[in-house]
């Protein structure tokens, strides 16, 4: 029994010896496999949530994501909706847009962004729209997150 344990111990140690080079040399392959697991996605609080729809305008398009009300369990009473504006060639100097974030046919807020200065004004039209969370240039687009109350809570 002692000899068997000893042999197992040495085999285990040799496997560990191989494990370090294998971990790094095969990192891309292992990481690709790991990335396919269902939990390997960035939480919507950070990713901004799934895209709900895109609205085309003259010279730019608006991408509206699904509202995010993330909580550890269930839904939070507060969240946000992420909206992104992408220019056909370049961002317009002024973005003035009216958003119906829940796609119920009723306008929820008006947003006015000066893309040169970053100054952003939000006019809520619905009681569930709270305030501006963040407004920032992201690569060739402009992105804003608007704080919301969860209508389901």
């Amino acid at each position: 029994m002692k000899k068997t344990l000893s042999i197992i111990g040495y085999i285990w140690a040799v496997l560990c010896l191989l494990l370090i080079p294998i971990t790094f040399m095969g990192n891309n392959a292992f990481a690709s496999m790991l990335a396919k697991l269902p939990f390997m996605k960035v939480n919507p609080i950070y990713s901004g949530g799934e895209v709900d729809r895109t609205v085309n305008h003259a010279g730019f398009k608006t991408t509206i994501n699904k509202p995010v009300f993330e909580a550890l369990i269930g839904e939070s009473s507060k969240g946000f909706v992420q909206v992104k504006w992408t220019g056909d060639k370049m961002l317009p100097p002024i973005i003035n847009d009216t958003i119906d974030y829940d796609n119920n046919g009723i306008r929820d807020f008006i947003i006015h962004i000066d893309t040169h200065t970053g100054k952003t004004e939000l006019t809520p039209l619905d009681s569930h729209v709270l305030s501006l969370n963040i407004s920032s240039k992201v690569k060739d687009s402009w992105l804003a997150r608007i704080n919301l109350l969860n209508p389901a809570k």
Binding site: N27, L34, F39, M40, K41, V42
Partner: peptide, 26 residues
């Protein structure tokens, strides 16, 4: 929540989440 609470990339770019988790496990 079946998700990662970190503003990083799952697979692309420098020190991606999947790549670092493989290293930590190994």
């Amino acid at each position: 929540t079946k998700s990662i609470i970190f503003p990083g990339s799952i697979l692309t770019g420098f020190a991606s989440i999947a790549s670092m988790l493989v290293i930590v496990i190994g």
